[in-house]
């Protein structure tokens, strides 16, 4: 089945089993490698993309359900010249170690700051619940999100 969607601002067509998760369409059919396979069970966040602006676990989202929708991946969030404030803050704070978890933290934090530009520490922790980082970079993540808040302000 052909599924038409918009990915990082460009029209794309994927010819695939509509039950196939969006993650495989992005990585294998559209060559957008940056969302990662972490668990396939929506438990870690490594595959997170925005679907119509909502942080979504692409590993359990059937590609058929995204027809006509806008999908943004972390590589489409900002550009090298103009990174998203969350990305700029993650770079400045030197957050990632292996970096495999980043899609979850960056895409979720970007949505949080769009909806609430001045979150408290508790609100940040709540918004980022359910995301995993095995290298233990949580302290730097918290610093980076707070830095992004000051950059947006």
């Amino acid at each position: 089945m052909k599924v038409n969607l918009v990915v990082n601002g460009k029209h794309a067509t994927v010819d695939a089993d509509p039950a196939m998760p969006l993650l495989y369409a992005l990585r294998d059919d559209l060559g957008l490698n940056n969302p990662k396979f972490g668990c396939g069970r929506a438990q870690c966040g490594a595959c997170t993309v925005h679907v119509n602006g909502v942080p979504t676990r692409s590993c359990v989202t059937p590609v058929g359900s995204t027809a006509g929708k806008n999908v943004t991946t972390m590589s489409g969030l900002g550009t090298a010249e103009k990174p998203h404030p969350v990305q700029a803050a993650f770079i400045a704070e030197q957050v990632p170690q292996c970096g495999y978890c980043l899609n979850g933290w960056v895409m979720t934090a970007a949505a949080l700051l769009r909806d609430n530009p001045t979150p408290s520490d508790a609100q940040i922790r709540t918004a980022l619940a359910g995301l995993k980082c095995r290298c233990g970079t949580h302290m730097a993540i918290l610093r980076a999100v707070k830095r992004a808040v000051t950059m947006i302000a």
Binding site: N33, K36, M74, A80, P83, Q87, I91, V95, L102
Partner: peptide, 19 residues
């Protein structure tokens, strides 16, 4: 000194083994 590779990771440009 910072890790230059971190920008590649955060911008979603780094090629991982899975890629």
């Amino acid at each position: 000194f910072p890790q230059k590779i971190i920008a590649e990771k955060v911008m979603g440009r780094l090629q991982y083994i899975t890629d």
